[in-house]
Amino acid sequence: MDMNKRIKNYWEGEAAVYSEGIEEELIGFQRKAWREIILENSPDYLKENEALNILDIGTGPGFFPIILSEAGHNVTAIDITENMIRYAKENLKKEGLTAQLQTMNSQSLDFKDNTFDMAICRNITWTLDDPYSAYQEWFRVLKPGGKLLIFDACWYLYLFDEELKKKHEENQKRIKEKYLRDIHEHKDPEEGDALGKSLFMSDKYRPQWDLKALIEIGFSKVFATVDITKRVWDDFGRELNGDTPQFMVGGEK
């Protein structure tokens, strides 16, 4: 089985768990916090009260389409897994909102050049088997002056860095004793760990890798914030994942 198919199969089985997760975010402060951090990075050419055409890549159960269509923007959301798209449709329906939802490989997009004002993604780039090619595709479908925003973390870097490994093991022990659970709860944790050891991004120091790639691809401006956790994670999230902080990295075409 090739890596891309293996990744797809894994995330098909994780859809229900992730849908439960976004339900918690939608009733918490994260609903507003994520919308603010995305829209404050809108393209410079955006006029007041103008609706953006936004591509959400690896939408999962549809968190970004909900919070951004609610704000009046036009959202197209894709995911390689049918189950994630199914949950996304259900979650949008519950909220009384609409978005264009499609099953699609994020590394080979079925969109014309210069289509979107923004391309955004959260916790998806670490799962890609060829992120450089994906970033080239995302660059292609952005309009000139459009913005790419990537939100992610170095989830498995501890497997390749002894200091981070020690911190991770200490935190895992503490979380297990305090909450009787692991840091990450997946339906198939063994396959998740196996993928973590073999995925392209797992041993990369980020967002340094991303910044270099975006420059090479042709983004005219690149930027990064190495830790946005105080803005978008609650206290429990920071306690679980404090040694793998969420970063934001992006570029302007």
Rank of each mutant, 00 (worst) to 15 (best):
N83F: 08
I85E: 14
G62S: 15
K221I: 10
M104R: 02
I66N: 08
P144G: 01
K230I: 11
F200N: 05
Y205Q: 06
E70I: 13
D113N: 14
E14S: 01
D227W: 05
F29R: 03
R86I: 03
P189L: 10
M201I: 07
Q107W: 12
E48V: 09
G13N: 05
L52F: 11
L55M: 13
A51H: 06
N123L: 11
N4R: 10
R86H: 13
G72D: 11
H168R: 00
A224S: 07
K204Q: 07
D193Q: 00
D129P: 05
I78Q: 01
I80L: 15
A153G: 07
F219G: 04
A153Q: 04
Y156K: 00
N53Y: 08
N4S: 14
N171F: 04
F63R: 06
L149D: 02
S133F: 11
I66Q: 02
A153W: 08
F223T: 05
I120C: 09
Y10C: 00
E82D: 15
D161V: 01
I80Y: 15
G13W: 02
N105T: 13
M118G: 08
S108H: 12
K173Y: 10
K176E: 06
L211Y: 03
Q107D: 15
Y87A: 00
M3A: 01
H73T: 11
T76W: 09
D130L: 13
S198F: 00
F200A: 05
